[in-house]
Nucleic acid binder design. Sequence first.
DNA 1: AAACGCGACAGTGCATACACATTGGAATAC
DNA 2: GTATTCCAATGTGTATGCACTGTCGCGTTT
Lengths: 231, 231
Amino acid sequence: MAKETKPAKAGAPMSSSHRAHAQLREQLLRSKFLPGQKINEVEIATSLEISRTPLREALNRLVAEGLLVDRGRGFSVPGLEPEMVFDLFEARVEIECATVRLACERAEETELEGLSDFLKESMAESPDASVDRLIELDIRFHDTIAELARNKVLRQTLSNLNDRIHLIRWIAMEGRRERTQSQHREILDHIRARDTAAAIAAMREHILHRNEDILEAIKAAYGHVYTRSSA
Amino acid sequence: MAKETKPAKAGAPMSSSHRAHAQLREQLLRSKFLPGQKINEVEIATSLEISRTPLREALNRLVAEGLLVDRGRGFSVPGLEPEMVFDLFEARVEIECATVRLACERAEETELEGLSDFLKESMAESPDASVDRLIELDIRFHDTIAELARNKVLRQTLSNLNDRIHLIRWIAMEGRRERTQSQHREILDHIRARDTAAAIAAMREHILHRNEDILEAIKAAYGHVYTRSSA
DNA sequence: AAACGCGACAGTGCATACACATTGGAATAC
DNA sequence: GTATTCCAATGTGTATGCACTGTCGCGTTT
């Protein structure tokens, strides 16, 4: 399950701009660039060993995805403006709830069993897994639900929103390991019981939704990012 | 001397790639290109009187927005695959309902009054307005609700979804003029009464949601588009 | 006549070059 | 010492050229 959404050949030699897009997305998720930082095209082009032309094509895609912003002259990493982060989390809640509802209607028993097995395995390795690994598992759980909702647009939208709040989720994951796991279990159980209302309620509770909590995560994110950069 | 801030927003002299993006989006919404059609870069670059470099940057943004697709070698207009259109409408329903709910909680009385006035004016000019004009009014109504929901991400997402189903909406608008208007009125009245459940229900009913209806609109769209192209 | 081959063409993907804007700093004036 | 002006350096936005690849037409072969 949770196959990647690339129907193209696996190790096929993709174009430079596609590779650049994928690599930059990865680096942005990993906070290689700081919020608000300006993007130096020649520097990145050099580091990726390509020219500026395909690089700029990738940058333009990232802008359309909200992973970069276009400031008339040059690109930069979006800042962590609280209002925007609030909006992103709120939008995520709405879409996650929609996918949960649809998954309740459409998921097959065997698929839910598979997801249950996945959760069991996740819980086994959870205690001593890295935060990166935990996030990976978390994303996989939510993406699988979106897959079971049978709506590619919602799934894609959700994936994009998650990209844009990756850092904050990363920060907030610390100290919520067991809580996250048990909530996942609860959500899944409600889906398996086809209790749509309960599943939605659990999902709504599961996602960071209190603005104070989000704000705290934002502050922690700043701390994390700057100590890391100065280290 | 301290100069005032630059006109970064309005009709400022935007870059070629930005202009190209705006113009192409417009042309795509107006179905200047047929579903599935391949994009010839030199031809379009010539027609827009720019070179291929900024054009390709615009094309890449449009791909990220789902208004074009990237087929390994070259770009093309997305086809009207029913599954994708179903997904788009379904996603739209979910997000519209989310914005209606939020608008119910957050909109101020004066704002709702303004929207009511807008509807009244729309109804006045409705009987003999062009379909283009009707769509414009329709979009404005829904976008205003999204604005009242106070969530830029949801609003932006909605705008993008609406772009992607613009043709189908255009087709389906014919013969639904009064129905659309009265449903808008109904939705707004529920919002003003802060009756969230009723507002959501009305919105859900308002948006094209039966797959048979959508399929019919798709067929009509093909007819529309091909007769128009051969004319 | 059909199949094959091949050469010219069309069209994309990328690198490079250039024009222009912005910025930082040094030199100079006050 | 501060302010100002000018120039160099930096960096973006766009045009152009080139290489490569897929395609189509036409002639050759059997």
